[in-house]
Design a protein around this nucleic acid. Structure first.
Ligand SMILES: [Mn+2]
Ligand SMILES: [Mn+2]
Ligand SMILES: [Zn+2]
Ligand SMILES: [Zn+2]
Lengths: 150, 150
DNA sequence: AGTCTACTTGCGACAAATCGCAGTAATCCC
DNA sequence: GGGATTACTGCGATTTGTCGCAAGTAGACT
């Protein structure tokens, strides 16, 4: 999905933010980055569109775009860096295998049931719809069974 | 739980890491920090124990301690900073209210049941046991119902 | 179109985090 | 205990991220 398909003008205004060329540039950069992208990559892509955009502007734009619900964040592999991603048409989550690093997408539908139960138990209305779950994928489970005797 | 109750020597060795005074100092700092702590706080606490410990050593130690399973990470409120926490006796998760900022703990036991479905569906064995879920707490839902007509 | 106002940008300075490397020390094996 | 091996630390240099402020401009109103 490109950002042309989402009404970013409305989204920004709805949150009291102004629509500036820089913010559009950054939104475009996040789009073009494809999946989960690091700030460095976004900065580089943003400068393809605007040669002189400042680094602090990129960071501040990301913050605004996240608050406006146009961009999602996810923790990187190390757990210490943040990845950015353009919001999808439908919510999704991720499963990351801690052994091989492979990632699987999990559609919002199958997670929805999990959330319902959680909501019943806790009374919270859950809104965070971009989880990064970690575990061991089927393949890695199989290969570790061959090597490790438990 | 203090780190004295967890066998950090074994945990480090099991992962091929050496036990150094600096790592013990950092582990101790994470312990004494109590809940979720920022790197700056951990650095400060670490320097109470070791006046000359270097900043880079603290960061590298945290990385090692996380990999050894002795320390957990969680995304901070902004979604861009990382918080550290000593591993608990029993796994737990967090629910953060995006309105009032209040946080609730969710014990791992009740969450694990909910993950079972997901494990069945995906084949993954889910091991990541320190999620930060976001939503709106019951209190904030109630007060928003009084103010906003839907 | 022109004016006003508040939000936003770019800049410079600063702080936080990362990296390579040379010296140091934890572990292993005798 | 003593010596060899190799991971680890501290340091300096660099990169990445943050902040305050003056200049610029988006949006509102006329
Ligand atoms: Mn994603
Ligand atoms: Mn926690
Ligand atoms: Zn795997
Ligand atoms: Zn609340």
């Amino acid at each position: 999905m490109t950002h042309h398909r989402l009404n970013y003008v409305e989204a920004l205004h709805a949150h009291g933010y102004r629509v500036t060329p820089q913010r559009v540039t950054v939104l475009d950069a996040v789009c073009r980055a494809g999946g989960h992208a690091r700030p460095a990559q976004i900065l580089a892509l943003a400068r393809e569109g605007d040669l002189h955009i400042d680094r602090s502007t990129v960071y501040r734009s990301l913050e605004v775009l996240v608050k406006a619900g146009l961009v999602l964040t996810a923790p990187g592999e190390s757990g210490i860096d943040t990845l950015y991603e353009i919001v999808q048409e439908t919510p999704h989550h991720h499963l990351r295998c801690t052994v091989c690093g492979r990632e699987t997408e999990l559609d919002g539908e199958s997670a929805a049931r999990l959330f319902e139960n959680l909501e019943r138990e806790t009374g919270y209305r859950l809104t965070g719809d971009h989880l990064m779950l970690t575990g061991v994928c089927p393949e890695c489970q199989a290969s570790s069974n061959n090597q490790v005797v438990e």
